[in-house]
């Protein structure tokens, strides 16, 4: 029993060390000449554009449901007019970034983990390395930068569509113009709300790409390891998203207030 616990902790420390050395490899290759622009653009398209529908639909429904559930409570307090503000603050500051990141962890981190894992199994990464090409620069750097750039954009889209969902929900029972609704939403948000929310999406994007690449690139050579890489990428990336969220909120609270 004690041996197993010890073995588990040893494995955890070993994995942390490996992740740190992968992080160093990424940074070393980030600043090397010959950046793969075409692959970066392709990855932005694959990661960003192809996730628009999923993120947009989820965010819209989320805003709609949130408004429908908040409304009776606010009516109870006689504060129905606070609904746009409540929606704006909760969606832009927390729900939008976190839900978008979790969706991206499920779709993108698992996709990258499975893709690189299968490339490892079929010796494609070895072939790239043995030929004298740089697989880290081509496969890892481009994917991590693409997720770092695309997740904030997807979050922005998610925020807008989430608020739109809230507008639809409000108009099911009442009558508010789109202009008035968005005016109330925007006026209730300050720079101190937007900046930490934006900064954390950059970290979310990075961690989604990094974990996906790490798990795929370091998977074992067996078909089972492809599934394992995809699965563990989602689990680890989701966990990191909540850890980063907690850290950013704490740090921004200390700095701003």
């Amino acid at each position: 029993m004690a041996d197993e616990v010890l073995k588990g902790w040893r494995g955890w420390f070993a994995e942390s060390g490996e992740q740190l050395s992968f992080f160093k490899v990424f940074f070393r290759n980030l600043f090397r000449s010959g950046f793969e622009w075409s692959e970066f653009v392709r990855q932005c398209y694959e990661i960003g554009y192809k996730s628009f529908t999923l993120v947009g639909t989820t965010a819209f429904i989320m805003g709609l449901v949130l408004a429908l559930q908040l409304r009776p409570t606010l009516i109870g307090f006689g504060a129905e007019s606070m609904l746009p503000k409540s929606l704006a603050v909760s969606i832009v500051k927390e729900i939008g970034p976190v839900i978008t990141a979790i969706i991206c962890a499920g779709k993108i981190a698992s996709g990258i983990g499975a893709e690189l894992g299968s490339m490892k199994v079929t010796e494609q990464i070895d072939a790239m390395e043995v030929s004298g090409a740089n697989p880290v620069q081509y496969l890892v750097v481009t994917r991590i930068l693409a997720t770092t750039a695309m997740v904030p954009l997807l979050t922005l889209l998610g925020d807008v569509l989430g608020l739109l969902g809230g507008f639809v929900a409000i108009n099911v029972n009442g009558n508010v113009s789109l202009f008035l609704y968005f005016n109330k939403c925007i006026s209730s948000l300050g720079f101190s709300d937007l900046l930490p929310a934006f900064i954390k999406t950059i970290f979310f994007g990075f961690v989604i790409g990094f974990i996906g690449c790490y798990k795929g690139y370091n998977s074992n050579k067996g078909t089972e390891s492809v599934g394992l890489a995809a699965n563990s990428a989602v689990v680890a990336a989701s966990l990191w998203i909540f850890v980063i969220d907690a850290i950013v909120v704490q740090v921004s609270n200390i700095i701003i207030y």
């Binding site: 490339m119 010796e123 494609q124 070895d126 072939a127 030929s131 090409a133």
Partner: peptide
């Protein structure tokens, strides 16, 4: 030149792109 057992072709690229890959990058 190293020929892998499976051929190890990059499966997201066409045969042409597979050939071009080392020429451009190496």
């Amino acid at each position: 030149g190293f020929l892998f057992q499976s051929g190890a072709l990059y499966d997201s690229m066409t045969v042409r792109e597979n050939m071009q890959f080392p020429l451009i990058r190496i």
